[in-house]
Every structure is written in C-alpha cells, then in structure tokens.
Design a protein around this nucleic acid. Structure first.
Lengths: 225, 225, 225, 225
DNA sequence: CATGAATGAGTGTTCATTCAT
DNA sequence: TATGAATGAACACTCATTCAT
C-alpha cells in the first residue's frame, strides 16, 4: 500500500539529524552506495568552498559528476545532505581518538592532552567548523544538534572537575557543571578565533595558555595531587 | 570540478561598516529623517523576529508603513540597513555605560562590575545578539566588523591584566593580550549559551562564576592588592 | 505589523471561489486594473485554446504581454486566475438576461423560453463550458462551486414545477425538487453533447425536443392551463 | 499571441482504445500475466484513490509491488494502463447483465428494469465513474471512446422508443434517436450527481422518478399497451 | 523478465531592484 | 521624496523514461 493518499498538503522538511547517517536508510546496492558517497564528498567540498547558502544543488551534483535529478534519490534537501556531511566528519573526528597516549595522573597534563586533542581536531577541520557554525546560525535544527553535542563534551569535563574537587586538588568553589561549561566555551571560542578567523597564535602557546588558564581557574593545587 | 569557486557576484556585498550610521549621509529634510528612522526601527523588529535571511525588504517596508520603492532612497541593500540597525543598537548599548559606579580598587570587584555590565547588556539585547551572530556567520564583512569591535574590548581587558601583573596582583604567567582574548571569549560565549540558547543559569550565579573563574585564571592574589 | 512571522509551513492554496472577483481585492490603481484585466483576458484565451492543464503561466503572461513575475502581483496560482476568468464569464452570462421577453402565461412557452436562453448561452460560451467541465473534473473546489451554481438553477425550476402542480397543470406525481434536478440534468448534459462534443442537432429542433420532453415528463395539461 | 496553440507534443498520447485490453498482446508466460494483472489492479486502486493526474507511475508500481522499470514491459504510458483498467471494469460491468430477469411486456416495467440495472451498476462503480469522467475531461481519446460507448446505449434506447411509437404506445412526436439521447443524458447525469457528488436520493425513489419522467416524456399510453 | 539507479527537460515561484508617475 | 507596478534572473524539484546489470 503506497502511503501517498494522505500526504496532500505536507511539505514539511524533516532533518533527522540524530540518526548517524542522515535520515533515510543507505542505498542497498553497491552502485547506490558509491553514488551517495560521491554526493556527500562533493557536498563537503562545495559547502566548504562556497558556504552553505551559496552552494547550489547543481554545484554539488556537478562536482559529484551526476545528474541533478539523482540528488533526490538520496536526499531531500540541502539540509539533509549537510547532515550527512556532518555525520561523515564526526566519524572522522572521533576515530583518531585511538591514539590516546598514556597520560599518567598529572591533572594538568590531563587537561593539556584534552585541550591539545580538541584543538588539533579543530585545526584539522577548520573549514568544516566554520561551515558548521554558519549552518547552526541559520538553522535551528542544527543549532540544537550542536548544542547537544557540546553538552556531552561539557558533561565529561564536569565529571573531571568534580573528581578533582573531591580529591581536594581543585580548590575553586564553583559548580562543576557550570565551570565546565564556561571553560569549554573558552576553549572552543578561542579555537574559532584562531583557526577560523585566523588570529595569529602559536599552536603550542595556544595549548599552554588555555591549559594554564583552565587549571588556574579551578585553583588546581599541584602539591595536593 | 564546478567553476563556481571564484564567483564574486555571490551573496556578499560591500558594506561601509566603518562609518557609524551606514554608508550614506543622513537625509537632510526632517521628513526624510523620520522615514529613515521608521525604516531602521522596522528593520530591527523584522530582523529580530524572522532572522536576517528570512526577512524580506517588503516585510521591512510594510512594517515601516512605507512603499517598497522608498527603501532605496535610504539604503542600497539589506546588508546596509542591517548596518544601520547595528549602529543604532551599539549606540544604545554604549550609552548606559554612563552609570559607571565607583568601584574602588578591589580588582575582583572591578572584574565583577565589568562582567555584570557586559552580561546585563547582552541579556537586554539577546535577540539582537543572536541576530548579529547569525549575520556574522553569513557575511564576512560583518564578521570582520564584529571581530574589530571585540578586539577593542579585548584590548581594554589586556591593559587591565597587564596592570595587575605589573602590580604583582595577577600572578599567572600568561601573555596579557592572549589571556584577555581567552577570558573574553569565555564570557561572551557563555552569555550566548545562556541568553540566546536559553541554558538555565541564575544571573547572579552567572556573574559570580565567571568572575571567579576569571580572577582565578589570573591567579589574583587578594593579599597583594 | 506584517503577518509573516507565523506562516512558516503553510503552503496551502486557497481558492475563494465564492467572492465574485477571485480572492484578493482588485488593484487600486488604474494601471494595476488594466494589467489585471489583460491577464484575465489572456488567461481565458489560453485556457480555452490549450485547456487548463496544458496552459502554462508563461503562456498566459506572454499572451498578456507582461513579465512572468507580474502574474503573482495579481494571482497566486493557475486555479486563482481561473476563478477570475470564471467570474468574468458568469457576469457576461448573466447580463443578457435583461431581454426577458414577455412570455404570457403559457406554461410550455415559459419552459421553451427558459430552455432557449440556457442553450443559447451555452452555445455562445461552449469553449468555456468545456473548460469549466474539465476544471471541475480536476479540482474539487470548482466541482463544488459548479454544483452550488447548478443548485440555484434547479431551485428555480423546482419552484416553477411546484407551482404548476398546485395549479393542476402538471399532473405528474413527482417530487418537484427531484424532477427539476433530473430535467435540468437532461438539458445541461444534452447541451454539452451538442455544443462541446459536436453532436449534430439543429438548434430549433433541440429547443423543441427538450421542451417537449420536459413538458411531457411533467404531464402538463394544456387544457387545464 | 503565444505560439503554443499547435504544440502537438502536449499531454495527449495515442491510445489504441478499440482493442479490448489495451494496445499490446497479453504476455505469453504465466508470470508475465500475473505481473500484468497486478499492475492493472494496482492502477485501479491508485487511480480511484488519487485521481488520474495525481497518480504517479511509481505509486502504481509500488502498490503492485514491482519495480519501476517493469512497468514498461507491459504498458507504454499512464494512459495505456488506464485503458487496461477501463477494459477490466467494463468486462466486470457487462457480465452481471446475465441475470436479465424476465420482464414480460409491460413497457414501463422494461424501462424501470433498464434504469435500475444502469443505476445499480453506476452505484457499484461510482469511484471508477468519477475517474472515467475525469479522464474523459482531460484526454480527448477517452472522451471519444466514452462517447462511442454511450452512443451504443443510446442506439438501443432509440430502437426501443421507435418500437413503442410504431406500436402506438409512445405518443410523443419526437425523433427517437434524439429522445433517447436526451433521456439517457438525464439518467446518466443524475447518476453522477447522486453517486459521485453525493446528492441525497433514496435509491428506489431514484429509479421510480427517472422511470416516471422517462415514460411520461414519451407519453406512454398504458391502455394502448 | 525484473530491477532500481540514473537521467534531464521543463516550469513554478521568489524577491531584490528599477522606474514611470 | 514617495509610490507600487513591473521586471527577470535564478533555482529547486518532479517524474516519466531509459538501460546496464
């Protein structure tokens, strides 16, 4: 039974940004998978080059070397293919986490490592981060998504701060959740300024400064560690 | 490879963002000045309601109660009237600074006062800040403008930090310019999260937490003060 | 206050076919009225020539000698301009009613006069009637409209039949409303067959045959008259 | 004047409506016959649900559970599969005629039986009749086809009327062919109004009223029978 | 015979911008 | 200055049809 009878007036656009690969199931045939992959790759290229707004679907299909109509075999809208690009990038950003170096127990070293990892990843994907921030500023769905992703990050940092407080290493009397939110904001916003806006800042000094400010802000007592 | 990368005729548009009131001189006649003012007022309303992209010039002229064609008597583009709105808002945001309360010499109190002033202003103009960030994400001219404005703010903070360091009050061995940049980033980004994204955070606690983190980050020694 | 804030997702199309001139108020300026009139005239030409479905908006605007975009200054859709054409035609079809010849009291003559008037009007507007029937078959809104218009016609005939029955002239024991519906159906459908489908049928004989069948069906007793 | 009047490549499409099952020979293999049957069945469902215009070939193949490309193994166009549906329905509508009850020689009873049979069949296939009328209004080929089918019906009625006239039972001095055309029009159009448009009319009263009007119109003299 | 991915022509619609009045 | 009708470039989107597998 086709489901077309009742959809008379609904032209709503759904962007199920939660599902990891965009909204619809991946194409079943290898050919389809290849085409879809070409599209996503082309979309990333075009988006990063022209920005979300100036990118036309035709630019994307041309870049992918397929016909205009085929776009709709895989995606319903520019938003939806952007979600697929985002999913791709995130997978790419999460994989390198494998090389988690041994950190020992030095709390400052831990902060440094986390900051360095974040900043390296940001630098590596600077063009995409700029794009993501643009799209988030335009589209509330993506704004919410970005917020939820950031929240996960903040939670982890909050845990860590709470732990340091309980062990008497972090002295500052702040709510861990809120301190984590503020300090994470600091790091991510500085990353934007440096890697997207192009503010000059030596990478190592960047890591050190942010790590120092972070640790100081929590009044980390190295002797207690 | 699509050949669209160098297409200059895109959505961007030169906006003389330096002149305080947008590009052209104000209208000479009182009637003209009134019409222009109505337009700017209407533009702010519409922009804040619909966002920059969804706002049509017709919406603005309708809201202002004038005809479509008259728009071009005063502005050349949506970007230009946005610049005028921005100039208006900034004037409004700078004026209240007059009530600079006497702060005494407590360095932390000084930070607190500055943060509170900034956060209050952000809260008061949250809708516009959201809009400004949207436009900055879309339009490089405004991005640069925003950066220059922020830079002025950072400079002032850098001065203050340097002063504290020289007086031996701020112990942290950080470049004052960079510390100022990072800490300002923290405050402004948190302000966005709270006042635009709607994260729950009691206003006083917000002021206190940010002030505390800021002061700690610089290792301000109250005894030295 | 512009009303655009809340219309985010509604792409419904309203065809307020009841209002005599289509949906929106007529243009205020003479120039606008002229352009609108040109459009409606062109639409009738194109619709009658190509049919509703094959008529493209571009055909209409070309025929009217105006640009494509101007169409939307006056109408929102093909349906809406069709409604305007329909309103025009109906006005045109109702005016000639002025020449209501004196009919005397012969009931059959009355039927004959009514049938002749209807058939003449149908013949004169045969192309449009074909079009109207096509659109009614496609678009439920117009189907309903046509039904309501026909209903008014049936009501008048029902009144007349009831009157004849009460005066003992029409003997047939039928519900006047239903007889009127059936006999009106006969006349209109035959008119379609003859004037649209092109079935050969001498006009006078057509009038006479339908009048005779109508009168007989009601068992009109001329002696009783 | 737009030059589109003679554009032959419009929506029309040659359909060999005479051959009873659509244009091409039936598939030879049983599998092919089954697939074809599924398609025709699905087409009827989709057409009756969505109308001819809104039905997409994909809806039909989905409903039939076969792939898009397979459609063209059996039909060349939407028109052609509609012709096949039409052939199916007509076969279905003609079969039940078998139960032709013995009617005796009462001329009115004969009319009543014919009307009842027609109306029952119309009621049973109301959705399809609506569809058929829609397609006829869109596609001249089907309009002609419908006309020829109706003509056969009229011929039969004309014969019957002529017979009654020759036997002195029908007194009305009308051309039998034309009277048959008009009265058949009455019945079919009323059937549409009741069964498609939903006008309220008790079925038995419907049969009686139409039969009475038909018999009266011909001035059938029961005593002469 | 069946599949379903790929095609691409064709048109509606928006809205910043111009300009005659 | 103000008006508002007219313009037209630009682009998304649909879906019947083809064809390699």
């Amino acid at each position: 039974m086709s489901s077309r009878a009742e959809d008379t007036s609904s032209r709503q656009r759904r962007i199920p940004v939660d599902s990891p690969n965009g909204s619809r199931e991946l194409p079943s045939t290898p050919r389809g998978q290849r085409t879809r992959a070409k599209l996503v790759q082309a979309a990333r290229t075009v988006f990063e080059r022209d920005g979300f707004l100036d990118a036309r679907l035709l630019d994307i299909t041309n870049e992918a070397g397929i016909s205009a109509g085929s776009f709709y075999t895989y995606f319903d809208s520019k938003e939806e293919i952007f979600a697929a690009v985002l999913a791709d990038v995130e997978e790419e950003m999460l994989h390198p986490r494998v090389d988690t170096v041994e950190v020992g127990d030095d709390p400052i070293e831990k902060i440094r490592v986390a900051n360095r990892a974040y900043l390296e990843s940001y630098r590596r994907n600077a063009k995409f981060m700029k794009l993501l921030i643009q799209v988030s500023a335009i589209d509330d769905e993506f704004e919410q998504l970005r917020r939820r992703r950031a929240e996960a990050f903040v939670q982890r940092n909050a845990k860590s701060i709470e732990d340091l407080q309980q062990r008497g290493i972090a002295k500052a009397e702040v709510d861990p959740r809120k301190a984590a939110s503020a300090l994470s904001s600091m790091v991510s916003r500085v990353a934007y300024t440096v890697f997207v806006m192009g503010e000059e800042w030596d990478f190592e000094e960047l890591v050190e400064t942010l790590t120092l400010l972070w640790a100081n802000a929590l009044l980390i007592d190295l002797d207690a560690a």
